[in-house]
């Protein structure tokens, strides 16, 4: 196949020049979620880690499902997501060696400022979800099997409701896109607080319900199995994992603010 050969030859010529800029001491690839990346958390804490260790962290921010898949295929050195159940299974299946709690943020319910379903007065999250369903107010769901989507589904379940169209709209989109859509059609939506605080296109949307413990959103760091994927940079990845759990890492997370608001709460043991 001369064609494939040509491609490889061209890449061989091109590869070094294209990669040269970013290669210094060493880097790891971190598969994580859009919520952490979009909020600006990584932009705030990674420089501190790089300064301390000389290790560059390259974040591939995708949906939780895709992040697991990337890690499972051996394409990332480390994993930081928010699906405790999934993370535990990932380790149990032998893809990872250990997972650890790093921090949490929380989900909030946003919706049209007029609050047609009157969820602002709800006592619990379950009640807020029930009010939305009772009012059949438009609700924009991620619908993409992401960590946030799964958390949202569990909340409906807990409220004993099977949401249905036409008022329940599954978008199949990321968090930001879902908020853009919710703003456009005056719909309620469940979002992580980090994305919400950093989100600029709120239009008529307002934060209506928050604070219920069932809405807490735990993030965990997972180390990838060296046996499954011997080619990965396990030494560097271990340093990242340890740093996240260390006092310095936890402090960096606590210090991260957007508009004076703390978004992530460190809770490593």
């Amino acid at each position: 196949m001369p064609k494939a050969g040509l491609i490889l030859a061209a890449l061989a010529l091109m590869g070094p020049s294209l990669n040269a800029a970013a290669q210094n001491i060493g880097h790891i690839t971190l598969a994580s979620t859009t919520s952490t990346e979009n909020s600006g958390l990584f932009g705030a804490i990674i420089p501190a880690f790089t300064e301390a260790t000389g290790i560059e962290v390259r974040v591939v921010a995708v949906g939780t499902g895709q992040a697991f898949e990337i890690a499972r295929r051996g394409d990332a050195d480390s994993l930081l997501v928010h699906d405790t159940e999934g993370e535990t299974r990932f380790v149990a299946d032998g893809h990872g060696t250990e997972r650890a709690d790093v921090m949490y943020n929380d989900y909030v319910l946003v919706g049209p400022a007029g609050d047609p379903a009157a969820i602002a007065d709800a006592e619990t999250a379950a009640e807020a979800f029930a009010l939305i369903a009772a009012a059949e107010a438009p609700f924009a769901s991620r619908g993409d099997d992401s960590g946030t989507h799964r958390a949202e589904q569990r909340r409906w379940e807990a409220a004993g409701i099977a949401p249905a169209s036409p008022w329940y709209r599954e978008l199949g989109s990321g968090m930001g896109a879902t908020l853009n859509t919710a703003a456009a059609m005056d719909a309620y939506a469940m979002t992580d607080r980090a994305t919400w605080v950093a989100f600029d296109n709120r239009q008529g949307l307002a934060l209506l319900f928050e604070g219920d413990e069932t809405l807490f959103n735990q993030y965990g760091s997972v180390r990838i199995s060296p046996e499954r994927h011997p080619h990965l940079k396990h030494d560097l990845a271990a340093q990242w994992h340890e740093w996240l759990l260390s006092e310095a890492g936890q402090q960096a997370i606590a210090d991260f603010r957007v508009d004076g608001q703390q978004l992530f709460f460190p809770n490593a043991e």
Partner: peptide, 9 residues
């Protein structure tokens, strides 16, 4: 795409 998802239109 990133800025759109942040709502920074």
């Amino acid at each position: 795409v990133l800025e759109t998802s942040k709502g920074n239109l």
